[in-house]
């Protein structure tokens, strides 16, 4: 089938400059193979990456007809519209030339931050069950599509992003690693796990179903179990977390008054800070001074919390060591 590749060479994403290349290829050929054929026979200066051609190396990620793809896993026939395939860089990634992304800046420097190898802890025999999270994370080809979809990277390229945080997850859940706490603290620095806004785009974008957003959430849980409650020393967030937990575990329901007071620094400091808001809420009938009646099911919620804490007792002990 006759295909016209409109290949972005120069310009900006908003105002791209295209060069057209025509090639006759079978519709079941992958877009990547077709692009390689164009480069090999028509123009050796066309700059794009790619190596394995079977979806493992993660190197050939591009925007094709507006969709971001690992181009060796999509066919020409299904991608083309009226015989045209427009090739552009993926969003957010800085470009070195044509559609050659600056992957060092976009991806590798961030991944490498968390890639420091396992420091063996010489620990207990590890079960298959314990290694499943690691195995899942290792399916990652670092194709960059999660970062491409990330709504935080959209506004802040310094955010580590789901690909690098998937690497962090891989270590945070590896029972053979001896420096879990240190890694979780590193991951909790500015631009780390706590800057994710859980928009779930990464999970939507991952072509391999690794659910990177879930992995970030799980890493946060892990950090919390290690006593890291918000990251980069934000005391207010830590107090908020503690107050939230105290309210649920102690009362079985969320007491917004006590949470607000504690978050802002206790009865006196918090009282002064939240007074105007409290008064407004009282006036509008959104709050009351009467004590709360006992919520049905509150005891049950408390029990769930107890059970959770007991099941994580080992982990908590481990972190205290």
């Amino acid at each position: 089938m006759e295909i016209t590749f409109k290949f972005q060479r120069g310009g900006t994403r908003a105002q791209p400059e295209y060069v057209d290349y025509q090639i006759d290829v079978p519709p079941e050929m992958t877009v990547f193979d077709a692009l390689v054929a164009v480069r090999e026979t028509q123009d050796g200066t066309l700059a794009f990456r790619g190596n394995c051609s079977v979806g493992f190396c993660g190197d050939c990620t591009l925007s094709v007809n507006g969709a971001q793809k690992v181009t060796c896993l999509v066919t020409v026939g299904k991608t083309q519209k009226d015989g045209v395939i427009t090739v552009q860089p993926i969003r957010y990634a800085p470009v070195e030339k044509d559609v050659m992304h600056d992957m060092r800046k976009f991806l590798w420097d961030k991944v490498d931050t968390f890639a420091r190898g396992v420091v063996p802890n010489g620990g207990h025999p590890v079960t298959d069950e314990e290694l499943r999270p690691v195995r899942k994370a290792m399916r990652c080809t670092t194709c960059g599509l999660c970062d491409e979809g990330c709504t935080v990277i959209d506004v802040n390229l310094d955010f580590y992003g789901p690909a690098a945080l998937t690497k962090l997850y891989r270590f945070a859940f590896d029972p053979r690693d001896g420096i879990t706490a240190e890694r979780l603290r590193e991951g909790s620095e500015l631009h780390g796990i706590w800057d994710c806004v859980h928009c779930w785009e990464a999970t939507e974008h991952c072509p391999f179903g690794l659910e990177p957003t879930h992995l970030i959430m799980d890493t946060r849980d892990r950090a919390i179990a290690y006593g890291i409650k918000s990251g980069y020393g934000n005391k207010m967030l830590e107090r908020h977390y503690d107050a939230f937990e105290e309210s649920i575990s102690g009362k079985g329901w969320l007491d917004e008054r006590s949470v607000a007071l504690q978050t802002y620094g206790g009865l006196i400091k918090g009282g002064i800070k939240t007074l105007p808001l409290g008064l407004r809420a009282l006036r509008k009938g959104k709050a009351t001074l009467k004590p709360h009646y006992k919520r049905p099911g509150a005891d049950h919620i408390r029990k769930i919390f107890d059970r959770y804490n007991r099941s994580n007792a080992g982990l908590r002990k481990e972190k205290q060591r």
Binding site: G117, V126, T127, D128, L131, D174
Partner: peptide, 16 residues
């Protein structure tokens, strides 16, 4: 390789 982090499949805790 396992000690360094390759998550080899296991049966229980023995590498399969």
């Amino acid at each position: 390789l396992d000690r360094l982090g390759v998550p080899f499949n296991r049966v229980g805790s023995v590498i399969d």
